[in-house]
């Protein structure tokens, strides 16, 4: 095994722009022995993973290895897919989110999600933000304040404060994505899941979202799927590397967690050959 110093090209090293992840993690979510199936097809198997409070965790790995699948199972979005099934346990503040008597809708309110393509509703900017509080029946003193607060936290307020009544579809792609983040914040979640949130954005818009994530990290726990290793290296405290391998018997490829650690360790001192190959660009 090569020495840690040259495991990753220079530009991929964790930059230390953010605080180094504390050695002791205070887990807010724990994934234990999770398998996810689509019908008979097992998309990911045997995943064990903890997410630390107020940390940013990146899920990386080649396309099709089940990153989105795992992410969707963290807030029960998989329930909406016909035939999808989750086995194992996922705990949130120690409570199994798949437990009996748990309302999946409450899970989704507490664990928000931002998608690959910005998906603002064809409504006004204001109504996009107010939507979540309204449908969840949140009692708010002032909706106007809540809208302003959410947009401010998403670093969008100054850009849109004069056109709150205009359609959200008129915003640029990067603004739309920050609107979607503001929308997710509006229902006061603890965790925000992001599935390749910058995949459809240009580099400048991407940078703004990355800066925003650093700010949000103060108050929220973030799990981000990204195919962009530099991004993981730049923003994440911890990184989990997944890959897909042919499962026993049939030729189906099943995703599995290869290695999980602080971002610095994953990029500078990978313990697994597959991780090392992937981050040094020899694979995927």
């Amino acid at each position: 095994m090569s020495s840690s110093a040259d495991a990753a090209p220079m530009h991929l090293r964790a930059t230390g722009q953010h605080q180094v992840a504390p050695e002791v993690m205070r887990p807010i979510m724990e994934v234990e022995n999770v398998d996810v199936y689509y019908g008979d097809f097992r998309a990911v198997s045997e995943v064990n993973l903890d997410f630390g409070l107020n940390e940013i965790t990146a899920l990386i790995g080649p396309s099709g290895c089940g990153k989105s699948t795992i992410l969707r199972s963290l807030n029960r979005m998989n329930d909406l897919i016909e035939g999808a099934r989750v086995e194992g346990e996922i705990r949130f503040h120690g409570e199994n989110i798949y437990g009996k008597d748990v309302d999946p809708i409450e899970v989704r309110r507490r664990i928000g999600m931002v998608f690959q393509k910005p998906n603002p509703f064809p409504k006004s900017i204001y109504d996009n933000i107010a939507y979540g509080p309204r449908v969840t029946g949140m009692k708010v003193q002032s909706m106007d304040d809540l809208v302003e607060d959410s947009l401010t936290r998403a670093a969008l307020w100054d850009e849109v404060k004069d056109k709150l009544k205009q359609s959200a579809l008129g915003l640029s792609g990067g603004q739309q994505q920050r609107l979607c983040i503001a929308r997710a914040i509006s229902v006061r979640p603890d965790v925000i899941l992001m599935d390749e949130p910058c995949a459809s954005l240009d580099p400048i818009a991407t940078m703004r979202i990355e800066d925003l994530m650093q700010e949000l990290r103060e108050h929220y726990t973030i799990v981000i799927v990204t195919h962009n290793m530099q991004q993981a290296a730049r923003v994440a405290d911890r990184t989990a590397f997944f890959t897909a391998q042919p499962s026993e018997g049939n030729g189906d490829r099943t995703g599995l967690l290869v290695e999980y650690g602080t971002t610095a360790q994953i990029f500078e001192d990978p313990q697994d050959k597959r991780t090392e190959d992937y981050i040094s660009g020899r694979f995927g």
């Binding site: 107020n54 949130f92 503040h93 409570e95 437990g99 748990v102 603890d190």
Partner: peptide, 9 residues
Amino acid sequence: AGAPTMPLK
């Protein structure tokens, strides 16, 4: 986040 939250149930 970090503040004790209500249970899911």
